[in-house]
Design a protein around this nucleic acid. Structure first.
Lengths: 349, 349
DNA sequence: TTGTATGCGTTATCAT
DNA sequence: ATGATAACGCATACAA
């Protein structure tokens, strides 16, 4: 019962025209008699013909598809990024396929390989581990890649980057200005680019606001709620007097807040908490979460624009965009009257 | 400077062998002299050759890639589903690409079209709007599709489905048994399959537990936190005496809980809340969220297994798997001592 | 405006 | 075991 798929030849036969004509109709060429066009379209419908993607991209040398590679799709911030990438991609005539590497560097390599074998036309890649070999691989495909993140200086690849170190310093400053004296850091996966930026920013924030750095106040875990949850207990045991925690992202912060509550600490009265990424969840959590926005949607949008423009003009000079984070203050870092009704928080929804 | 990509012919030239031999090496054929194999592999490395995907799939008539189509990737339950689909896909030698339709039925049609043009080998599709034309389109590609969701009886397409109506009834029963007398429903997008199932289950739950149904107690919104948030105000105004809310999913429930707090209602003391999907967030929210688990990961896993098995054996009889939901009781529906420290909730992480 | 014929890069069949 | 060659389905240059 396996009927062979109709090809362009079948359509041509059926319509009584040449394959050239069918192809022209398919691709919207103007020079084509209306009568023939009519007949071809009928034949296409009759036979239920759909063009074969592989053949088409083999011939055209392009797939009209780009790929977004993110570290972990379970993190809502990457979902937000994906949404804006998808929107720009669609506007510019590309389909988007989404890959989550789940922290596996192999997956990133595989993505670039897929690019090289012309599986997709271009790549937007957001990596948390930027190794030299990764950079080398990306550089070799520079005409088709845009990196979201920090590349070594003078790397000839389009990129959009945000100064998250500054964002971290901003968070610490906010906490100190709110009267906190012992600010801890619950960081994400060690040896990742974001974790290292957080630590640098944290130390800078402390220094700039007259506080000494103490290694026992900063711990590493994973960039997840569970990570934040489990890291809290030992941290509190080691430094019971702490009155503020800067978390490397919002998921960690949510886990931390949950665990603090279980351990009898009130947020923000006893311990202030600040996260990073400004995910929507922080707007409905209780308390709502103060956070450093890293403009994920904006970065996705810009990266996709850079990429599509480069695909259209490969000889463009490499471009680099640098963004600056913003601090969004909510309840988790602000002393408010205990028991008061929280204010509506959906202004920015 | 645009150097043409090396092809298999270039490799053959360089290694001084025929393309046949190169191809055999590439695809791991056994009948090949070690010496030649050696030379070919060197040539491949020297030229930095990677096979062209389009040409390969044109010839082989397969892409080793499957696609998962979900309604909204911003909903963590679909992320959980995607993760298990990806895992099974990888185990069985397929790459996964992920499409979020964002409620746009056109995107679903497009996905099936992509299947037909042999862009991907197979499709796992999870739709919230099952129209007749959708079913027809899917049926026509039945040898390559597995549907997550309920299909019309005797549709000859693999599917895995969960009795979410029963799950809704379970939730209502739990609320009534907890002493609640006025149970509201905050439903998701009207005219979707899940929303209709929730409503039927809600009514069944009320009936089976001796409560009358009242239309003013059930409202429609979107399947998002924002939806739950905004739906709460009018609902509370219309029926201020309500003491329980069953929400069509967990995102809605989180928005509802937030808004209840802003309006001065305590959860669960004044109003009990139950959601659906059992997403991780419900384990760290405050209070933690009672939820009906629809086994999203399990459904993804099963669907992918069904799909890959069918791709390997297209003439298999259609198979249908039916699962049963479970209720996970947490704080949002249980009276607990006010002000007590919450219990650790991560047992199931 | 329309038809014909060649090639895209790979795999597979058939000789050798 | 290895080499030559014909498809795969589409687009396009060129001829008509």
């Amino acid at each position: 019962v396996q009927k062979r798929k109709p090809t362009i030849v079948d359509v041509a036969d059926r319509a009584g025209v040449s394959v050239g004509t069918v192809s022209r109709v398919l691709n919207g060429a103007t020079n084509c008699a209306p009568a023939l066009r009519e007949r071809v379209q009928r034949a296409i419908r009759d036979l239920d013909y759909v063009p074969n993607h592989a053949a088409r991209s083999l011939k055209r040398r392009s797939t009209e598809q780009i790929e977004l590679v993110v570290p972990d799709i379970a993190n809502p911030v990457y979902v937000a990024m994906a949404k804006s990438v998808q929107q720009v991609a669609r506007e510019r005539g590309y389909r988007l396929s989404l890959i989550s590497t789940d922290g596996n560097p192999l997956e990133e390599r595989l993505a670039v390989k897929n690019l090289e074998r012309q599986h997709v036309d271009g790549l937007v890649i957001c990596s948390i581990r930027v190794t030299p070999s990764f950079v080398e691989q990306v550089r070799a495909s520079r005409h088709k890649v845009c990196v979201i993140g920090k590349l070594p200086p003078r790397t000839e690849v389009d990129s959009v980057h945000i100064d998250s170190e500054f964002g971290a310093a901003l968070a610490v400053k906010h906490l100190v200005e709110g009267g906190r004296r012992t600010v801890a850091l619950v960081n994400g996966d060690a040896k990742t680019v974001p974790a290292e930026a957080r630590l640098r920013g944290y130390r800078r924030g402390l220094a700039e606001n007259g506080l000494a750095h103490d290694a026992s106040l900063s711990v590493h875990t994973t960039f997840t709620m569970f990570g934040g949850y489990t890291a809290t207990t030992p941290l509190l045991k080691a430094r019971p007097e702490l009155d503020a925690i800067f978390c490397a992202n919002d998921l960690i912060a949510l886990g931390v807040m949950r665990r603090l509550r279980e351990l009898g600490r009130r947020v923000p009265e006893d311990v202030a908490v600040v996260g990073v990424d400004n995910i929507d969840l922080g707007k409905v959590s209780s308390p709502t979460l103060t956070s450093v926005s890293l403009l994920a949607g904006e970065r996705g949008r810009l990266a996709t624009e850079l990429l599509t423009e480069r695909l259209a003009a490969p000889e463009l000079e490499p471009r680099h965009v640098l963004l600056t984070p913003r601090l969004i203050v909510r309840e988790s870092s602000t002393d408010y009257v205990v028991g008061a009704r929280p204010e509506p928080s959906y202004v920015s929804f």
